[in-house]
Amino acid sequence: MSTLLKLKKINLKYKTGKDSINVLKNIDLNIKKKETVSVVGESGSGKTSLIMLIGGLEKPNSGKIIFRNQEITGLSEDEVSEIRKKNIGIIFQSFYLIPNYTAVENVALTLELNNFKNPEKEAKILLDRFGLKHRFNNLPSQLSGGEQQRVAIARAIAMKPELILADEPTGNLDTENSIMIANILFRYVKEEGSSLIMVTHDTKLADKAKRKIKIKDGKIK
């Protein structure tokens, strides 16, 4: 399998007043295409910061991030957005659906942004695939946590991205919903051949990934 993502000597610091905290220190990481990776570690270890950097939502203080053979660290915000909207899907712990959009509209938004014809039709197909046929026109406030996360996953994978970033995707769900979400996510990755980087505290979920990375004090152990 060829390399999809390469992180070279990545350092990330956050400034808190006059002081600064080294969140990530000299991170080197390679992710292959179709690879599933779980990132584990204690709270504050730098897991979320790592996937924020990979998603191009933060810029490192030093080092290089190469995605699909293109260095993204030096790109402008809009250029990174362009890469993200086509190739990277992100799933959040708190779902973050747009509150006044229906389930279909939340999913269609990504497709529409990528100029798809009949985005709503495509969104419905996806939601149907995740068992949400009866929830097409419901607002997020009318959905359960599990349903919201399924809509969020549908939104993230709508573009069939090569890389899916998931930050504690089951963190806000009960056990039953957590299992269902994990199954959906891993089944999809397997079927579509996307790579997955998933931050989690859940060891069972972490074990589902082919590779497990442990971060401690900003370093990969």
């Binding site: 998603g55 939502l57 915000e77 809009d78 957005s81 362009e82 993200r84 909207k85 086509k86 992100i90 973050y96 659906l97 747009i98 938004l109 990504t110 942004l113 990528n114 939104r155």
Partner: peptide, 11 residues
């Protein structure tokens, strides 16, 4: 923030 995350330009 969600719009930015899924690839909308700030502009």
């Amino acid at each position: 923030a969600v719009r930015k995350a899924i690839g909308f330009y700030s502009g």
